[in-house]
Amino acid sequence: MIETVIRTADVPAEDRFEYWRDNLRRMHAPMDLVSAHSADFRASQRILRFGPVSVLTAAYQPLVFRRTPKLIRQSDPEMYHLALVTRGRGGATWDDHEAEYRDYDLHCNNSSRPCSVWVDDEQDMIESVGVKVPKVLLPLPRTKADQVVGRLMSGRDGVGALFAGFVTRLAEDASTYQPADGPRLGAVLIDLMSAVFAHILDANDRLSPESHQRVLVMRVRAFIRQHLHDPKLTPAVIAAAHHISTSYLHRLFQLDGVTVMAWIRQQRLEHARRDLRDPALRAVPVNQIAARWGFTHHAAFTRAFRAAFGTYPTADRAEPPPVKDA
């Protein structure tokens, strides 16, 4: 994984807008930029590269991006960019239509298509997180995939929420991944973007069985995380919620060398340990924290905690938090 960070705060105020524009042109594609805030432009972007796939987080003041036919002829990286607006409002205009975006809307752009993208000038900043994937890697016919551009989709539910949650967590937790994780994470991002496109186009039959399976695993794990507090969460409940058999659910987890219940237990224990170490929850009894994460019997929780972490919950809570390097 390669990380690049661009901050206009790193250069003098009078150079910031040009610095931002030049970096976007160099790292993404030729474009024209206009902003009423160019005298002291505030913006930042973080790019995480997982092979040919990139995850981008950005925050910037209102402006207008333009990709004209002339600029496209100069250079076209042939990318699809699927972005989630996490704060703010904006929109985009193409030859035949336009769309407006608000918090937790997903929108897609195509580097080969002329467009203008704007940010509402009545706000201070807009924030977003997104994924860029080379067109050639998306397992959908180009003519079908192109139809996603300009189509609205929510990042709050369904496959849109799955994409939003995974990309947001990936951007937040990037420091925990190893270089060897890059190709696998890149493949997952391609599968998720493909699933979003297929959902918008109602073209799920065009995805490969492997892509379907990987997206299903992510759906299942997201469902489990949302229901860890429920002591009645069982493989049968999970399978029924996803319209698959219990035996198929077990096979999905066996591909990663773990059982369903072992994965659930590990997730519960990790969340309970995090709460035990939270100073704000110091006064909450251990058994209440255990119950919060689906453990109905204190003795069973204590045994599982010691087996996983080599210490008792009360002893772990008493340990000072690890000191981070300066």
Rank of each mutant, 00 (worst) to 15 (best):
V220Q: 01
F41E: 00
A174M: 10
P279V: 11
R268G: 02
V85A: 03
L276Y: 03
K232I: 07
D103H: 03
K232W: 13
I47V: 09
P179Y: 03
Q123S: 06
L228I: 02
T57W: 12
R66P: 08
A299L: 08
G150V: 03
P179N: 00
D146W: 08
R268L: 02
D15N: 09
S44E: 15
Q147M: 06
D191Y: 13
T8M: 01
R151D: 05
H199L: 07
H298D: 09
A240D: 11
G186E: 01
H199P: 08
N110D: 15
T296V: 05
I6K: 09
I244T: 08
H97S: 15
W118S: 06
A239N: 06
G155A: 05
T57F: 13
D76C: 12
D10N: 08
Q45T: 06
D256P: 03
L216K: 09
S247R: 09
D22Y: 07
F197K: 06
M261Q: 02
L249G: 01
R184A: 13
P12W: 05
G257P: 00
R16K: 08
I72K: 09
V85R: 01
L216Y: 11
S194L: 10
T176P: 03
F253N: 04
R277N: 15
Y104D: 07
G257C: 00
G158E: 03
G155M: 06
R151M: 15
R169A: 14
G90L: 07
T168C: 12
L82M: 13
S175H: 14
D157A: 10
Q288G: 08
A195M: 06
D121H: 09
G88S: 09
P235C: 00
D146N: 11
H229L: 04
G91I: 03
D202M: 11
Y177L: 14
A326I: 14
V5L: 15
E3A: 12
S175R: 12
R184P: 10
